[in-house]
């Protein structure tokens, strides 16, 4: 870990001024940042600890817009009774992520910002355009079983690992951002940047900006939602493929559908293709599989991850059937 100066501001305003300093990074739960710093994958000169700041941890589900304070802990949201009842996909995405120790520490804002688990990025030595721009991508002719199928390029095929971000992509979600000078709200769809040609850039967050809240427009489709996640082991693993599906049903017919995919893309990935197939369909297993097929029609598999196309088709179908039973 490289040396840094540690500061612990008492207010958000102070934190925003500190975070604007060149070389400063924000520390919240620490589960990602401390790990990245230990591996020299992040080397901030100044660490601005905001984990203790008051007023940023509330979860408010009462209004027309759900509001998740950026410093709310994953475990608290995962076990929120109202969230489990009204937006099971969101609660499940958190419950199926990480371990209880990590969920107790990690924050909802920080979770959105977690970085890829690509081993060629994490190992600190392989050619990696994300870690050392212009150095190449070792995954292209290496072990790419975990890599993404969507939102990739010849410069980077890394996978966005987050479950929470993926589930949020199935809803009308926005990210509230503050800086010392201003505040802005960015739709989640525009918050993450597909790795594409500039793999080093993962979000639109600028130096000095802090995520303060995540908002979700309330919808009856929340109750008809689920998050399905398939992993190499039953618990405590990243998704090979995951899917969030949120439905409104009119009898057996799908009145509206939202579908997002995880484990297969360089950012939380909404599938308009799957939504189009589901909307208006009578929801049978066959219809779910057709939606899954549509979701992966544009996939770009590599050498070892083509299995995610067939697996993903079935995960979408399973999620759609579960969601329809709840709707």
């Amino acid at each position: 870990m490289q040396p840094f100066t540690y500061v612990r501001p008492d207010t958000l305003e102070q934190a925003l001024h500190e975070a604007a300093e060149p070389g400063a990074s924000v520390l919240a739960g620490g589960t990602t940042m401390v790990d990245l710093m230990r591996g020299d994958l992040a080397a901030p000169r100044r660490v601005v600890d905001i984990g203790h700041l008051p007023g940023l941890s509330e979860i408010d589900l009462s209004g027309p817009v759900l509001r998740f304070g950026a410093l709310a802990r994953m475990a608290d949201a995962a076990e929120d009774a109202a969230l489990k009842r009204d937006y099971p996909a969101l609660a499940e995405s958190l419950q199926l992520a990480a371990s209880q120790q990590l969920r107790n520490a990690a924050t909802l804002g920080g979770n959105l910002l977690q970085r890829t688990r690509c081993p060629y990025f994490r190992n600190g030595v392989s050619a990696c355009n994300k870690r050392v721009p212009g150095s190449g991508c070792s995954a292209l002719d290496g072990e790419d079983r975990e890599m993404a199928l969507f939102g990739i390029s010849d410069a980077c095929v890394a996978n966005y690992p987050g479950d929470w971000g993926t589930a949020l992509a199935a809803f009308d979600t926005a990210v509230e951002i503050r800086s010392a000078a201003a505040s802005r709200t960015v739709p989640l769809a525009n918050f993450h940047v597909a790795y594409g040609d500039d793999p080093a850039r993962e979000t639109v967050l600028e130096q000095g900006e802090i995520v303060t809240a995540i908002t979700v427009r309330a919808t009856p489709a929340g109750r008809g939602s689920t998050y399905a996640k398939v992993r190499d082991r039953q618990s405590y693993a990243y998704a090979l493929v995951s899917a969030a599906v949120a439905l409104e049903m009119d009898g057996d017919t799908v009145a509206s559908a939202r579908v997002s995919l995880g484990g297969v893309a360089s950012k939380p990935w909404r599938s308009a293709e799957a939504e189009a197939v589901l909307t208006g369909a009578t929801l049978t297993e066959a219809a779910g599989l057709r939606a899954g097929e549509a979701a992966f029609a544009g996939a770009r598999p590599g050498r070892h991850n083509a299995f995610k196309v067939e697996l993903g088709r079935r995960v979408v179908a399973r999620a759609a059937l579960t969601a329809s039973r709840r709707a």
């Binding site: 612990r8 620490g30 589960t31 790990d35 120790q101 990590l102 520490a105």
Partner: peptide, 26 residues
Amino acid sequence: NHGTCGSCTVHVDGRRQLACLVLAAS
């Protein structure tokens, strides 16, 4: 020392956490 094995689990304010991923200052 990486946040994946749980052997450093302690309680912080009554909740289990991984001591390897928490700065002492925090």
